[in-house]
Design a protein around this nucleic acid. Structure first.
Length: 269
DNA sequence: CCGCAGGCCCCAC
DNA sequence: GTGGGGCCTGCG
């Protein structure tokens, strides 16, 4: 068991923000599976307790090395974002594993969170090696190339998305995903959209939630709804226009603005 | 039982 | 270049 002091961090908001699909909660403790790690974590005031990974992993995973105050100052120029930040202060954007993130969001098309969680859990069980922590059962997520059995992908109840997962497994390597980090945002996005089943939304999710592109702004049905309500009431506006507006309006940390607005949208459901 | 969901692809226009 | 139907499957 390790313990560390954390500032400007709220574990609950960060883990329950709806972008991670292998998180479970038991009272104060969260169990998180990420790539080939499984760990437990809890927060009491400004201390984080954790087990199963080291401090370096925690800092990177929860993006605790980001200039949080500067980010909030920049996105807080917008009044709606500012009030969302007040409510959900300490929420961070986790750095997921790019491959697991890509597969998760490929599963998200026309789905819902419980279904995505089911898909990812079944894929992990079917293709991943067993890893355990304190007798907790867990499975690593398979590496690129590891989803090598179409029938088993279908058995994971992935439906029409199975063909996308299978193709991604053929096309994508660890090196390809890592190389995207060094590209300008438009080029990295274009490269991701070459993968069948990946459009604007999924590409932006992978860029924001796993590859460190803090300016990426995924537009899903929740964000669409809240942007229209807050900024374009009674106006016809396309996703293309919403995306252009958001990136200009919120700037290089637009992704953080997105995530805070997303929290507002979800609470109003 | 039945409509629908955190989206993409394809095909009209 | 833009809009709308179809898609697997589980959830509500």
């Amino acid at each position: 068991m390790s313990k560390m002091l954390v500032k400007d961090f709220n574990l609950g908001y960060t883990l329950l923000c709806g972008q991670m699909f292998r998180v479970s909660r038991a009272g104060e403790w969260f169990t998180v599976a990420a790539r080939d790690h499984i760990f437990k974590v809890s927060q009491s005031s400004e201390y984080l307790e954790f087990e199963g990974v080291d401090k370096r992993f925690i800092v990177n995973y929860f993006a605790l090395d980001e200039p949080y105050a500067a980010i909030l100052e920049e996105i807080g120029r917008d009044g709606h974002v500012r009030s969302a930040v007040k409510k959900y202060y300490g929420m961070r954007i986790v750095r997921q594993d790019p491959w697991e993130c890509l597969i998760s969001f490929l599963c998200s098309s026309a789905a819902n969170i419980p279904k995505i969680k089911l898909n990812i859990e079944m894929l992990s069980k079917s293709f991943g090696r067993s890893i355990a922590l304190d007798g907790l059962e867990g499975y690593a997520f398979p590496r690129p190339g590891g989803l090598n059995h179409y029938g088993k992908i279908v058995q994971a109840k992935t439906g029409f998305r199975a063909k996308y997962l299978h193709a991604a497994n053929e096309l994508v390597s660890e090196a390809f995903l890592e190389s995207l980090r060094r590209l300008p945002y438009p080029d990295a996005k274009k490269a991701l959209k070459q993968i069948p089943g990946v459009g604007d939304k999924i590409a932006d999710c992978v860029l924001l939630f796993s590859l460190g592109f803090t300016g990426a702004f995924p537009i899903d049905t929740w964000i669409r709804k809240i942007l229209r309500g807050l900024y374009f009431e009674n106006q016809e506006i396309s996703d293309r226009e919403l995306l252009d507006f958001s990136q200009k309006h919120f700037g290089r940390y637009a992704g953080y603005a997105q995530q805070f607005l997303y929290m507002l949208a979800r609470e109003a459901m």
